[in-house]
């Protein structure tokens, strides 16, 4: 689970700020990894809701449009084809291929509602690209990249260790 202090800090963040950060991150990741669309095929047009159970926001992605819409937990999210729920660190570790989606599903750590084809296509597409949130989400400015990656790397390592996920 996300440390309570992080959840506490995230809760009052203004929605437009989180929306802007999420959209910038998604745009950058999709630009870095165009191979994602090759495996997603037509499933890229289907809305996918990512609902971290320990964070105050939901994220609804339409990858074909390269768009994400952030909603506060409890608010009515946009319509989705499939919805993936679980602790945010596990969801990020799954996206990076550090955990096996089926195993986390068997263990009831994550749950999936709606269209399973879209969920499977997303999992397989994410597995096929070298997604690395520390590298992909580091500040774009050359001077800030190394310290940015160091900070993000330390945060990731700490969060993964809390969940018992290998972080090599």
């Amino acid at each position: 689970m996300l440390p309570p202090i992080l959840r506490l800090l995230a809760t009052p963040l203004p929605l437009p700020l989180v929306q802007g950060m999420a959209q910038a991150s998604l745009t950058h990741i999709l630009r870095e990894h165009p191979g994602l669309f090759d495996r997603l095929g037509t499933f890229a047009a289907r809305p996918i809701a990512i609902s971290p159970t320990d964070a105050p926001f939901d994220f609804t992605l339409v990858l074909a449009r390269r768009s994400v819409r952030v909603t506060r937990r409890g608010a009515t999210p946009p319509a989705y084809a499939t919805r993936i729920c679980g602790p945010i660190v596990l969801l990020l570790a799954l996206a990076e291929g550090r955990l096996d989606g089926d195993a986390e599903f068997f263990g009831r750590h994550i749950s999936i509602e709606g269209d399973m084809e879209t969920a499977l296509a997303l999992r397989n597409a994410a597995e096929s690209i070298p997604l690395d949130f520390v590298r992909d989400l580091a500040p774009p400015w050359r001077w800030a990249q190394r310290p940015g990656q160091a900070v993000l790397g330390a945060v990731r390592r700490s969060l993964l260790e809390r969940e018992g996920v290998p972080c090599n």
Binding site: L94, G97, R98, L99, D100, G101, D102, A103, R123, E127
Partner: peptide, 8 residues
């Protein structure tokens, strides 16, 4: 397990 993830 061809349908499984890299971690598996």
């Amino acid at each position: 397990g061809r349908q499984r993830g890299r971690a598996y």
